[in-house]
Write a protein that binds this DNA or RNA. Structure first.
Length: 261
DNA sequence: AGTGTATCCTGCAGGC
DNA sequence: TGCCTGCAGGATACAC
């Protein structure tokens, strides 16, 4: 989609916007996509005029790109917003549940938003030591801690469970109870889980698709997420599911004991 | 400041 | 088959 100019915006479901359709469309129309980056779970399309089109997929959102010559591969099922390009192509934000969001922020607003997010776990600057210092200040369950985007950016429920399993840390452990060694293991696990998932194109449970409409292949590599009742790939014990702050957490009771190791 | 609860919305699986 | 309940990748507005 790089270099394309957005000629027309069609908003099917205004509830994925954070402002009026009119204000949104007026700000986006006529701009060109200069580059695409990511911050945490947000896809950022940098537009001419220093504007950032910020897309959060939520639970069921997807950004589907259709080039000018439609080779008809995937059809959007729940189009919420369509960006039509001057060259005939179209980018669709498709979202069954509409928990996702699409916003157009100016430079200043985007910087402010980005500053409110925690560090990128894959950035060089993100150290085990910094992670330990940060976790030591909170008594909330480590799984819940990992989901808080202000503390660390981009970790969702799937990767939180997977990283904790790899690190051998029980999801309900208070963040502040992690030893330096455990924080070190968690730091490594987060990085390896996230980078492996990126290489495999993400995790498709049901809805996730990349811009070409293809599923992510990390689903096959899940060790505990959604696998309660199955055997732990490391020790063979039965994976359990518990509810933590109203969200499921999956873990192996043997590999992830409730006390520090 | 930090934590727990409810809410937004659609669709699917499982029990009866 | 049909109805009901619970649950789902996320984030945020509240009350306390």
């Amino acid at each position: 989609m790089l270099g394309r100019r957005i000629r027309r915006i069609e908003v099917v479901h205004p509830d994925v916007l954070r402002e009026s359709t009119r204000a949104f469309a007026d700000r986006v129309r006529g701009r060109e996509i200069r580059s695409v980056t990511r911050r945490g779970k947000n896809v950022v399309l940098h537009l001419t005029g220093e504007f950032a089109l910020v897309v959060n997929l939520g639970m069921t959102g997807r950004l589907l790109a259709f080039p000018a010559a439609p080779e008809r591969r995937v059809r959007p099922t729940h189009p919420a917003v369509r960006f039509r390009f001057a060259d005939g192509g179209v980018l669709v934000f498709d979202d069954q549940r509409r928990f996702g969001a699409v916003e157009c922020l100016d430079r200043r607003a985007w910087r402010k938003r980005s500053r409110a997010l925690g560090p990128e776990p894959l950035a060089r600057a993100f150290s085990a030591r910094a992670l330990h210092e940060a976790t030591s200040r909170s008594r909330t369950a480590i799984r819940t801690w990992l989901l808080d985007q202000r503390r660390i950016a981009g970790v969702g429920n799937i990767y939180a469970s997977e990283a904790l399993h790899l690190a051998g840390i029980h999801p309900a452990r208070p963040a502040s109870s992690l030893t330096r060694e455990e924080a070190g293991r968690l730091h490594r696990s987060l990085r390896s889980v996230l980078s492996a998932a990126i290489v495999l194109g993400g995790t498709t449970i049901r809805d996730y698709r990349n811009a070409r409409g293809e599923q992510g292949n990390f689903s096959r590599r899940l060790r505990v997420y959604g696998r309660n009742g199955h055997r732990c790939p490391r020790c063979g014990a039965t994976v359990e599911r518990i509810s933590l702050h109203n969200r499921a957490a999956f873990f192996c009771p043997v590999c992830q004991p409730a006390v520090a190791t």
